[in-house]
């Protein structure tokens, strides 16, 4: 089906909205009435028709506006996109992966024509047409990673694999849940996860790394992560905390339904063939509480999850101060009825 793209903003006047279709396909992350960390990985080989899992790189109604927001962030802060010198090959891997995937998965929106290394890329939603030579950086307006990630929703961490570890050696990160590429660049898997509470003691990272190191070509994996964000703000970065942190104090019982968003990340993992690196796309989906509770099962369950989540997690995810407000609001949509297993609406 053809996608109707929204004209909306993720800053200042926050005109972001989810259509009814977007609400129905929202990746609600809780499969039961409580939450704790786990190595919740599964194969990323499609999913139910119309769901965000169906395509390798989901394109939705927010595409054009998200790309405009990314351009604004990069304009103000070029360090949101960095690539260490040895990561250029991985950048070409990523460009190839995305162009091939999108042109196959959305033939009405994207086209890729290849004649040897002479490539012709057409991105209809963004009105881009580019002829270039694959593996020749001088034929693109940006490096390969920056070029393609300016046209793809979600953040991208490009990881080098060596020494039985993964290293965050390149990326484009403008829609992040309070972490900084500029701070993490060059770090290994354990180093960049050091701020996460509880999980290391649980052995989660050791097991997750072992899983990731063994991801093979053609066998991508995925998981969901989540947090809470006040206002539909994509760029919740440490660099701009002074701008958005204060917005967390603007919640009231009257506006919490509209202003408080559940933020869910679809994290996918692909082995990159030419560089033997990995790409870790982190795609952010936002939904306001008032839209979320239109699905009764989700309203009931989110109330129970947020109410019971351990204090360390609520603190780390940045909503500990607003938890009482959120729980009060959500309690109105929880009649105590049992909820069915799994994430899908009843």
């Amino acid at each position: 089906m053809t996608i109707q793209f929204n004209d909306e903003t993720f800053r200042d006047d926050y005109t972001f909205t989810n259509s009814e279709r977007a609400i129905k396909r929202f990746p609600f992350p809780f499969h039961e009435d409580s939450y704790m960390y786990s190595v919740n990985m599964e194969q990323h080989q499609g999913g139910p028709e119309g769901s965000i899992y169906e395509k390798r790189f989901d394109v939705d109604e927010h595409y054009i506006s998200e790309m405009k927001d990314r351009a604004l962030v990069l304009d103000e802060d070029p360090l949101r996109c960095q690539s260490l010198p040895h990561m250029t090959l991985a950048g070409w891997d990523l460009l190839e992966l995305i162009m091939v995937s999108k042109s196959e998965d959305y033939p009405d929106l994207f086209e890729l024509h290849r004649d040897g290394n002479n490539w012709h890329w057409i991105n209809k939603p963004l009105g881009i047409e580019q002829k270039f030579v694959f593996m020749d950086e001088s034929t693109l307006p940006y490096g390969p990673m920056e070029y393609i990630t300016r046209q793809t929703q979600g953040d991208f961490a490009l990881l080098d694999q060596r020494d039985e570890n993964l290293w965050m050696d390149a990326g484009t990160v403008t829609t992040q849940a309070d972490w900084s590429l500029d701070f993490d660049i060059g770090m290994n898997f354990f180093e960049w996860h050091a701020p996460v509470p509880l999980a290391a003691e649980m052995g989660v990272f050791k097991r997750a790394l072992k899983f990731l190191l063994n991801i093979q070509q053609g066998m991508p994996a995925r998981r969901l992560n989540w947090t809470m964000t006040v206002n539909p703000l994509l760029d919740t970065s440490p660099e701009n905390y002074h701008k958005w942190g204060v917005q967390k104090t603007t919640l009231t019982p009257e506006n919490v339904g509209q202003k408080q968003y559940l933020r869910v990340e679809l994290q996918t993992f692909f082995r990159l063939p030419r560089s033997n690196g990995m790409v870790f796309p982190i795609r952010c989906y936002l939904i306001s509480l008032e839209d979320l509770v239109t699905i009764p099962k989700w309203g009931r369950r989110l109330h129970r999850v947020i109410r019971d989540v351990p204090e360390e997690l609520a603190t780390y995810k940045g909503f500990i101060d607003n938890r009482p407000l959120i729980v009060d609001y959500l309690s109105k949509f929880d009649d105590g009825a049992p909820t069915s297993d799994g994430v899908w609406p009843d």
């Binding site: 080098d160 694999q161 060596r162 070509q217 053609g218």
Partner: peptide, 12 residues
């Protein structure tokens, strides 16, 4: 099988 690399070049 698909290719698997356990002996990759260190591109640095």
């Amino acid at each position: 099988s698909y290719p698997v690399n356990l002996f990759a070049l260190d591109l640095r």
